[in-house]
Write a protein that binds this DNA or RNA. Structure first.
Lengths: 356, 356
DNA sequence: TTGTAGGCGTTATCAC
DNA sequence: GTGATAACGCCTACAA
């Protein structure tokens, strides 16, 4: 074990200055191109820089500049294509805007609050996805002067409405209402009369929005039963259908156990789990049971799953750009973007005339 | 537009000290618990801290501590489940070790070299995946004293073998050789005699290793034709099979156009592309054409694709821990870990006796 | 065109 | 127990 207190072993601006026989100010000037430098001096400095393999230490630069040149993004978890795609869009835009991206997941970690606050202390701005931490934490981050963009989550205020200096976060969400309403009509057209909503609206604003709209849209035209699913993976879907087929708690209302016409799952993975178990149990989809998901992950195509596609990369991209504007001092009123979504019709929602 | 030069609007340790009527040294002591402080003083300081919502600025802390408390990870691109899973494992381990994670993709960006070097200037260590940048850049990072772990990539030396003070990176890779050899035997057992390797060994050490082993293992027992595929997505697979079916360049050897017994694709997405086009062209898999992939992504199960599973999260986890050890001064000889993989047999590689 | 020096926020070593 | 104060690496008025 050695322990050096120096950051790395890299050369500092002083080393370069000494070697080139100039002052650190001059070195800084040629590095940043911030003021004219005589040709010959510049050459000497450049020589010294490459000889010493000098690269400015970001800590020094940031401290002096008063900015981290880094953004954070906090995920509830990182599992599944959804988050990966959002991250791709975010990282690409941030890179273009010359900012590093620090990712963090709160999934199953102790003290998410402290972690998020610590992250906020090392970035110029933060994107918060879904239900990662509660509003209080987000408000605290904002109160510290760190701009926040919420993604797939309702905007957050840094304090009570009426107080002065209250900030409201920007937000970027996918259109849940529009697609849920459209999906409701589509299902009704399929003759569906008994609908199970399998998901966890508590865990996700997206899901809550979809369930609300679906329930409203189907009201009076179909029975709607919300069935809780815990988790967003395939296993959660398997458990969900199993509970429905094998009965829930001992004293469950028998009506709750009958097989619905359709299971609307809160995402594709859960829907795939339903399909998996349905197949094992010999249920034919969509004849015996129709199924839909949400997200349009790659496996959905292979499973013939009807679902809703969200512009995942664009969500990340927009969040990065809104954040960048705030960091640069934009004081426009809070932006709330709703990105378009669309239904991808496949086989699991029922028979279509034009089926190939 | 406003422009504040201060980092955020947060209170500094001086503000807290002033308010509590103590010195910054004392505040630092209570924040870090690094030396005894009288109960009453401590209380005053804590009061001041919470009144001011004080959180130490990471930049100041890092500069003084001489460490960034952050690790970097550089991906060639972020597309697909493989990288997402690796990132999950990496972030989880890094979080546990109390380090932030800065992600970067070099995909299609200008000046990847500069970006990687800039990243290296803001982290304590770096994980480099696959073919993100060439060895020279990696060597340069190491020469700056920033430890590197290569992932899915051969270890890199910071300089010529014989030179003094040369560092060699640690590396973590999945077992390609073992599984490629096993796959070869499995395919031969299926009676395969004409094999196409569809992929881009230039673009990935993993692919190169697999192709080498497969070629060797099949030598004399089957014909092996490497066919170039550019890209790692479904579209690349479609293009690959199309080229094979419709003929390559005008003057191609007719032998190169005949349909092989099997297409071994360099990853699942490419294999899925092959399956997609095969289905469209009315080819039955595996009767007319067998197919295998690599990675075992979620869609592979639904497509019935035979493939090889890698412990993706573990790859990330191990890389994070090896890196942490180096950062903490571990001077053991370079570690080169090979993580186990396994074949997942499904329907596309041919008929199995025990098919359900 | 170039150099000097103070500041960015925190830690830790000395004295007291 | 506490308080000055010198780092840490860099930037940028202000002078020269």
């Amino acid at each position: 074990m050695t322990s050096t207190s120096r950051l790395g072993r890299g050369a500092t601006i002083y080393d370069v200055a000494a070697r080139a026989g100039v002052s650190v100010a001059t070195v800084s000037r040629v590095v940043r191109g911030t003021a004219p430098v005589a040709g010959s001096t510049q050459a000497r400095v450049l020589d010294a820089m490459s000889a010493l393999r000098f690269v400015p230490n970001r800590l020094g630069v940031s401290l002096a500049e008063g900015r981290h040149a880094a953004n954070g993004i906090v995920f509830p978890d990182l599992v599944g294509p959804y988050f990966a795609e959002v991250l791709i869009g975010y990282e690409a835009a941030a890179g273009e805007l010359d900012r590093s991206v620090i990712v963090m997941s709160t999934d199953g970690r102790p003290a998410p609050r402290d972690r998020v606050l610590a992250l906020a202390a090392r970035v110029d701005g933060l994107v918060v996805l879904g239900r990662t931490v509660d509003d209080g934490v987000v408000a605290e981050v904002m109160a510290r002067g760190v701009p926040v963009v919420t993604l797939a989550r309702t905007a957050v205020s840094s304090g009570p409405e009426q107080a002065a200096g209250v900030q409201v976060s920007d937000s970027v969400v996918a259109d849940n209402h529009g697609r849920a309403a459209e999906l409701a009509e589509h299902l009704l057209a399929h003759g569906v009369r008994d609908v199970v909503l399998l998901g966890d609206p508590e865990a996700s604003m997206d899901v809550a929005e979809r369930w609300t709209t679906l329930t409203t849209a189907l009201a009076g035209r179909a029975t709607v039963r919300p069935v809780p699913a815990h988790g967003f993976d395939v296993a959660a879907g398997v458990r969900g259908l199993a509970a429905l087929l094998d009965g829930g708690p001992r004293d469950a209302d028998p009506a709750d156990q009958r097989l619905p016409d359709i299971i609307v799952a809160h995402n594709d993975e859960v829907a795939l789990g339903v399909l998996q178990l349905a197949r094992q149990r010999g249920l034919h989809v969509p004849r015996d049971l129709a199924v839909t998901g949400w997200d349009d992950v790659m496996a959905a195509e292979w499973a013939g799953l009807t679902t809703v596609r969200q512009p995942m990369r664009l969500l990340g991209d927009r969040a990065a750009r809104l954040l960048d504007a705030r960091i640069r001092g934009d004081e426009a009123p809070p932006q709330h973007e709703v990105l378009p979504t669309r239904i991808v019709q496949r086989r699991t929602c029922g028979h279509h005339e034009e089926d190939r």
